[in-house]
């Protein structure tokens, strides 16, 4: 017993001060892309051509980047430095169309309406379903429970049964084999319920967007309330998105 107590003192308190204090991420972390379209050369399509998931389209001579398809691989960084990946980890949005990054700023997720905020604001139980995910999104979602991020202090908890859950957090490109189970899980949640799509696979199929064995993401299968891009999304990205959804940020 004494050993356990002394070790506890040695390990100390690990919980980060987020959201009071902004986290310090690695310098090489690829967060929100910043597109400086003014320096774009006419006719150059190199970013669109280099993007493996065809996430970049050129509209009116300027690249528009679909964050939902983006794998944050930085293949699109061209010699003119038009697209740069910043250190900003805040990426979550409410609507799919908000993920198309062009000239405007990314409209970060606003909170739920008053009625739902009253129900879920202080206690949100989530059921995580991996619909074909590669385990990276799942691991970085599971990690929210460790003392560093400590999801519980925000009133959010991951539960074992969909019957206990308020929301469905889905990852993975929705493989053909998992589609029925995903829909069954959604049906098993009691009303009212939320759906959160976390990761590039969940939003638009990720690296498997062209595979006939997947649905290329959640698509129209479920009504999604929060989109969290990334491959995988950094735990702070997901946490930031959840807190914004509940109006705590």
């Amino acid at each position: 017993m004494l050993k356990i107590l002394s070790e506890r003192f040695r390990q100390g308190n690990r919980t980060s001060a987020f959201p009071r204090v902004e986290p310090v991420l690695s310098k090489r972390f690829r967060g929100l892309p910043q597109i400086d379209a003014s320096r774009c050369q006419n006719g150059c399509q190199s970013c669109a051509d280099d993007c493996p998931t065809r996430a970049i389209e050129l509209k009116e001579g300027a690249p528009v980047l679909d964050l939902g398809r983006c794998l944050f691989c930085s293949n699109c960084v061209c010699p003119h430095d038009i697209i740069k990946f910043s250190n900003d980890y805040r990426l979550a949005v409410r609507k799919r169309k908000n993920l198309f990054l062009g000239r405007e700023e990314l409209p970060l997720a606003e909170s739920l309406d008053d009625k739902l905020k009253k129900l879920f604001g202080r206690s949100l139980k989530l059921r995580v379903v991996s619909a074909g995910g590669c385990n990276a999104c799942e691991a970085d979602c599971n990690v929210l429970g460790v003392p560093t991020y400590d999801l519980g202090r925000f009133g959010i908890q991951i539960v074992a049964s969909p019957r206990h859950a308020d929301g469905l957090l889905m990852t993975g490109p929705v493989t053909r084999n998992m589609q029925a189970a995903l829909l069954d899980t959604y049906a098993a949640l009691p009303e009212p319920k939320l759906v959160i799509a976390s990761g590039a696979c969940a939003i638009a199929g990720g690296p498997f967007c062209d595979s006939p064995e997947t649905n290329s993401g959640v698509g129209e299968l479920l009504p999604v309330d929060l989109y969290v891009p990334g491959c995988p999304p950094h735990p702070y990205t997901l946490l930031d998105g959840l807190l914004r959804l509940l109006g705590k940020r």
Partner: peptide
């Protein structure tokens, strides 16, 4: 009250 089938882990 909504009646739904027993939760079967998505198996069937």
């Amino acid at each position: 009250v909504r009646r739904a089938p027993a939760w079967d882990c998505g198996f069937g």
